[in-house]
Design a protein around this nucleic acid. Structure first.
Lengths: 211, 211
DNA sequence: GAACAATTCAAATAACTGTTTGAAATATGA
DNA sequence: TCATATTTCAAACAGTTATTTGAATTGTTC
């Protein structure tokens, strides 16, 4: 081969970009092949069909984003609850506002949430649930007893929701603020806010059950 | 006409349902007309083209949802901050989990967020920004001075995010919990949690600037 | 360099898309 | 009832889709 990337690799990368932008159905084999500088028949030759490429794209996107922005990277020596939440928010916010390949995973997820495909069941099982268990353990361990499991779930949703909102409201953000990018300082400030706000929220929830 | 609904009205209602489920691009004129029990050419006759029907659908959906679940309905006599937040969360949660026609607006919004069309600019201007100003005024009035405007925005996003998350994560929720519905009691409990959690979060934010 | 496998390519296929057309059917008003 | 306007309809149009095909090209191995 004359290039350092195989056609198969180029197709996966191009598929990531196109699927993330348009979702499974609106992404066409034609434009993916064009972006990958491959022939129109390349996908069917290398992957069998569009759906199998989509599976490969998901695996690739998750692999990149979870290694680039792991959710427990920036933890100090003896982490407290707030450190855990900050670490989680830091990773999610960075994934969302990443403009490199590592940023495509949240975009793929957004597409899948609005137009689910058969791939969603596998993704939920293999990727999303395990990831949310990080937060679950942390929140559950930090709250004192007597708080019903259902309420713990709601607290998790409050924290996840604050982060995920920036993924799902992206088009609005781009229409209010001119640019779609976010500086490193802004990302850290946002993660700090979410950690602080959530700490207050957890405290208020706790207090409901101790008074 | 033999029916109590005109073809035009039936097309708008069918368009609401199909566009909300599949988004603008994946919704086909053919299936909308089939659901409306109209001929394939009916949309082009009554609206000119698909895009103009989409505009009408948005107006209809917003009209229904905003009159069925206004964001300041359940306010007590002398409302406090928590009452305002509860009222906001109550309305948004009910809109999201409504299975009638009033529930189609959040679904349309979800589709538009993942695959924006030309309609989004108008919707953002006419509908979304005015609606978020309700929260903005409330939060801004409740927090004491010296809190930078940027931080107030983040607090608003924290509250909105907690609510909107349930719109965008719907497919996951349906895969964890068996059913997509939510009882009235659960909705109120969720709104109470968000109000309580957010009060704690606002308090924690406030405290950062008073210490 | 020859023999073979792997890959790329342009063209064709069948199915679907939004839209247009002109005739048929229905409703309206005198 | 008749003339007119409105609405419905099946058929056709041009464009796009994912996939298939078989030949041409490239790479690999002996």
């Amino acid at each position: 081969m004359n290039n350092n990337q195989t056609t198969k690799e180029k197709l996966i990368k191009a598929g990531c970009a196109i699927f993330a932008e348009k979702g499974y159905r609106d992404a066409t084999i034609s434009e993916i092949c064009e972006l990958a500088e491959a022939n129109i028949a390349a996908i069917n030759y290398h992957f069998g069909d569009k759906e199998s490429l989509y599976d490969e794209v998901w695996r690739h996107a998750f692999s990149i984003t979870s290694s680039t922005y792991p959710i427990d990277r920036s933890l100090p020596e003896a982490p407290e609850l707030k450190d855990y939440i900050y670490s989680y928010a830091f990773a999610i916010i960075h994934r969302i506002f990443c403009e490199e390949e590592a940023g495509l995973f949240p975009k793929l997820l957004h597409q899948e949430m609005s137009r689910p495909t058969l791939a969603l069941d596998r993704i939920a099982q293999e990727v999303l649930f395990p990831q949310s268990q990080f937060l679950g353990k942390v929140v559950r361990a930090s709250l004192e007893q007597k708080i019903p499991e259902e309420r713990i779930r709601l607290c998790m949703h409050s924290i996840i929701g604050q982060c995920a909102f920036f993924n799902f409201s992206r088009p609005l953000r781009e229409r209010v603020i001119g640019k779609k990018t976010m500086s490193e300082e802004e990302k850290e400030q946002l993660a700090r806010h979410i950690a602080s706000f959530s700490m207050g929220g957890l405290g208020a929830t706790q207090q409901e059950y101790t008074s």
